[in-house]
Design a protein around this nucleic acid. Structure first.
Lengths: 181, 181
DNA sequence: ACGCTTATTGAGCGACCCCTCAAGTTTTGA
DNA sequence: TCAAAACTTGAGGGGTCGCTCAATAAGCGT
């Protein structure tokens, strides 16, 4: 037997409640009690559908990242400009969720092995997509050099995102656009 | 009346214990109980000398950052290469403390106003030192443009540091050295 | 040597957190 | 229709954490 309709609805309510809370109150404010209050369920129901609070948070973050993917099917038609654009879109369009991702990556990535591995793997995939796009644009380039340049480009994007997520005054999309050549 | 010799010694033992714990067990492992255990004191003594646990942690981080300053007296003789070198020295020489700084900046900077303001102010001071050094090297440059370039340079350094603090495999000093032109 | 200040201790407060589980209710598919 | 599976609830377990405070001890200037 699979999942009941009731369970599917509840699951969606939990996800919506989690997303809203993350945006409104940040990671600290997104406690299990707060999620359950907003979803109008009891903690037991939550744990009937998720293994841990962390799972729900990570799901919300993943959905938000996937939502801006310029090439969801991974056909290989995206350009570096597309990928930078998607990055900008995520940070400026979903700043609250981007903040959560940053917090999860920093906190979990430092002390939680599974989280750490997922963050590294995510970075690796992103690095490869950027590099492949750069090599499609100029197949004669030295792959070694392109990889290094891509690593630096991504670092700059992360640094600028970091800066703008801490300081609302900072013009992220303007500065990041400078990187599209 | 001032502080007793005994208090000064205890204060130093607390600082040493905090620094050692931050390096060994990270921010999460650096609980008040752990600090007090290692310093061989009771919690009450800690609070006779510090207002909060956070104060001790921030003090340790500040000391480590100040220790690599290429121009502690702020005379204005440091070059951009010096400043990048100091950044590299901090990240590669004190990776554990650099991790703590990153965590404090991300966590506190998101939800704690005083911490947020300190992080922003610290960035601002660093930005100005890098920019002033760049302008000393080339006084004819457009200050507006130099400021933007400096902001991007700092973002890249932060991004590379972020990368290497999460991934021990990453060659931070090699990649960051590419930025010195 | 004395009195004021500082230091230290032991005991414990109170808040918050994630999560569990037995017991009932609803949904589902055959 | 009916039993098995899925769902929901209410109550609460178990733990960590930062921090406080009255009482006692030690240090210090005069």
């Amino acid at each position: 037997m699979g999942r009941n309709q009731s369970g599917i609805r509840t699951r969606q309510r939990i996800i919506d409640a989690t997303r809203a809370l993350l945006a409104e109150s940040g990671l600290d404010g997104t406690t299990l009690a707060a999620i359950c209050d907003r979803a109008e369920i009891r903690a037991g129901s939550f744990y009937n559908l998720f293994d841990s609070k962390e799972d729900a948070v990570l799901l919300v973050v993943r959905e938000a990242i996937d939502a801006v993917d310029p090439d969801p099917a991974h056909v290989g038609t995206d350009t570096v400009a597309d990928l930078i654009g998607a990055y900008i879109k995520f940070v400026t369009g979903e700043p609250a969720i981007a903040r959560i991702y940053l917090q999860v990556a920093v906190n979990g990535g430092m002390s939680d092995k599974p989280i750490h591995d997922r963050v590294i793997a995510h970075h690796q995939r992103r690095l490869e997509r950027f590099r492949d796009a750069a090599l499609r644009a100029d197949p004669t380039a030295d792959p070694e050099r392109v990889t290094l340049d891509t690593e630096i480009l991504l670092a700059t994007l992360h640094g600028l995102a970091f800066r703008s997520l801490l300081d609302d005054e900072f013009d992220f999309s303007g500065t990041a656009s400078e990187l599209i050549t």
